[in-house]
Write a protein that binds this DNA or RNA. Structure first.
Lengths: 201, 201
DNA sequence: CTATCCTTCAAACGTTCGTTTGACTATCGG
DNA sequence: CCGATAGTCAAACGAACGTTTGAAGGATAG
């Protein structure tokens, strides 16, 4: 999280973990395989929970609102912030950072781990917003995911840009409300003003 | 852009640029000073233009709408996508990536380069949205900036997650419309549903 | 107890990193 | 034309990188 994947050496890593340097290659095989294991350990359960929550939502009500879908989508990510024994904010920062990581293997892995959940949520949104053109929905999900990724990754840097005090801690419940309000409004925003976009799908 | 700052060596860099390895240290002093020069060259004019456009907007109409402010804010960043001789999308990707870069010196530099423009836009938004609590505005600007940063940084990765075809090119004008519609709706979204937030500033 | 397997560890491997050196070349004011 | 200045370049520097090695330790089944 602090120095990026390529900027973190196995020596400092193993030293901080108080384990032997060679142990990583013995147990995982390589540095790349280690980071893959790190991501799989957190992301597989997270996306499984994300899908399970959507299933539960759709079981309770046949046609959940876009806002409700957004909320459960966010919840799975934000829950990790407060899960301190799973890395808490350190892991979410690493994760949010990695979304924009252009390294081929990591990129492919992340895409693969998210694909099933993304497909499920996309079709759920299509049912909740039938009048929204499909390509517009994709862009807006793209924006939505970006806001989440950035919020997870945000270091104090750009909070200082906005003039935010460090006293504002990352409360997951409050953040969920704020993000849901913001993203729901964006997702259901009217289309007028967007050049070259036909009004219906 | 492809391998990150720490993952890019001076040797490959200078080889691609067809210059001698030692030339960088001769002219810039160090690798860190080089990347700082790269950012300053693009970001100083961009944020200057961002402020100038806001000045012009406020001169034309005394109280511009939030949507108009968002639009000129986005325009300065999105203009770089199409400015191919300044690096085009390669630079915006590098830039969007760097917003989440936790490296201390780069972080401080980015914050310093953005601070004046951010302060100007923050007060402009406060005038356009007087009923929005100040801390809520900061969060929403934070989200807004995140969406922009992610959109700039987005590799094909998460577009594949959303199922987007590679044929969709990054058209700056269309992207500006889409982002403006999305972000404006989020920025002016009603506050109900946000726990623990008082309705007025 | 012995033999076998799993694990740990210090040391070393070869490579690559950012940076420095010192000789060489071009440019140009006087 | 010449001395000074500025720039280029191949080579080398020490350090740090990911990974491998081989010996030593510890547990367990027969």
């Amino acid at each position: 999280m602090q120095h990026g994947f390529e900027g973190t050496s196995m020596r400092t890593l193993t030293a901080k973990a108080s384990v032997n340097l060679a142990a990583v290659n013995y147990h995982f095989g390589s540095k790349d395989a280690l980071i893959e294991a790190v991501f799989r350990r957190r992301l597989d359960p997270m996306n499984a929970a994300r899908i399970a929550e959507l299933d539960r939502l759709e079981a309770a009500a046949p046609a959940p609102s876009a806002e409700a879908i957004i909320r459960v989508f966010l919840r799975a990510s934000l829950a990790m912030i407060e899960d301190v024994k799973s890395g808490g904010r350190n892991f979410t920062r690493l994760l949010g950072r990695t979304y924009t990581e252009p390294s081929k293997p990591i990129r492919a892995l992340i895409g693969q781990l998210y694909a099933p959940a993304m497909a499920r949520y996309k079709s759920a949104f299509e049912r909740a917003l039938p009048e929204l053109p499909k390509d517009e929905l994709i862009w807006r999900m793209h924006f939505m995911f970006g806001t989440l990724a950035y919020t997870l990754a945000a270091t104090d840097t750009v909070q200082l840009i906005a003039g935010c005090k460090p006293e504002d801690r990352y409360d997951a419940a409050l953040l969920e409300d704020r993000l849901t309000a913001f993203l729901n409004a964006g997702l259901v925003a009217p289309l007028h003003g967007v050049r070259g976009v036909r009004k219906a799908a």
